[in-house]
Amino acid sequence: MLEVSRLSFSYAGRHGPVPILKDISFSVPRGGAYGVIGESGSGKSTLLRLLSGLARPVEGQILVDGAPAVRWSGKMRRRVQFVMQDPYASLHPLKTINSALGEPLRIHGERDIPARVEKALAQVGLDASFRFRFPHQLSGGQRQRVAIARALIINPEIVLLDEPTSALDVSVQAEVLNLLKDLQEERQLTFVLVSHDLAVVAHMCDRASVLHSGSIVETLEARDLRAGNCSHPYSKELMASARVGLPALEVEQ
């Protein structure tokens, strides 16, 4: 469904080009979930900007269902959508939820907007009373649900998730992750999930790459992630951090 080959990105600095991403390749089958594990400065945000068409790669290409994503207009736009990390920043502060959810439909000139907005809200577990509220009247978890509904309302095939739960409380994180899993199953969505949280990635994804200073250092299957089977020293370090406190949580079933 999504194929990324030899993607590179750099920006022009004072002393020549500054490389941000080097030679990134991976592919995700339809309905699959691919994880990208990285910390700040690893280039993960840039990768998502490239995948969503917000920035253009310097080299390499992105294939969506076999078609190169070069001109991001109309049809291609609808196929790839984006859910961002901070639910407080990703909603327009002066627009009601109704307006935020209707906007994608209006942009693409669709009909039957009120009914579809209501349906989209219901799908993310929010009742109709939320329609005419403003973002500041919603909690972080509710806003993230709205952001998910907005991304899904034009029926994309690929959804890019940028740390979708790192700004949320753990109990809300569980709700949002469950919701994403359900929606993925229901609609055969293809996910690219970027996160620094190995447990979240292992829970959501089938495969994941570890991104470190702009390069993929290692690609792991979910079961390797769980078992801690990795070879690169950086992955091992991440793995060690993710396992802190686990012994204390061992539950005798």
């Binding site: 753990v170 569980a174 447990a199 959501m204």
Partner: peptide, 20 residues
């Protein structure tokens, strides 16, 4: 208990996370 169970965990595979 709910806090403990709602965390996705590396050492345990669950299909759905428990919610509060």
């Amino acid at each position: 208990r709910a806090l403990v169970d709602s965390l996705p965990r590396l050492d345990r595979q669950v299909d759905r996370l428990k919610t509060l």
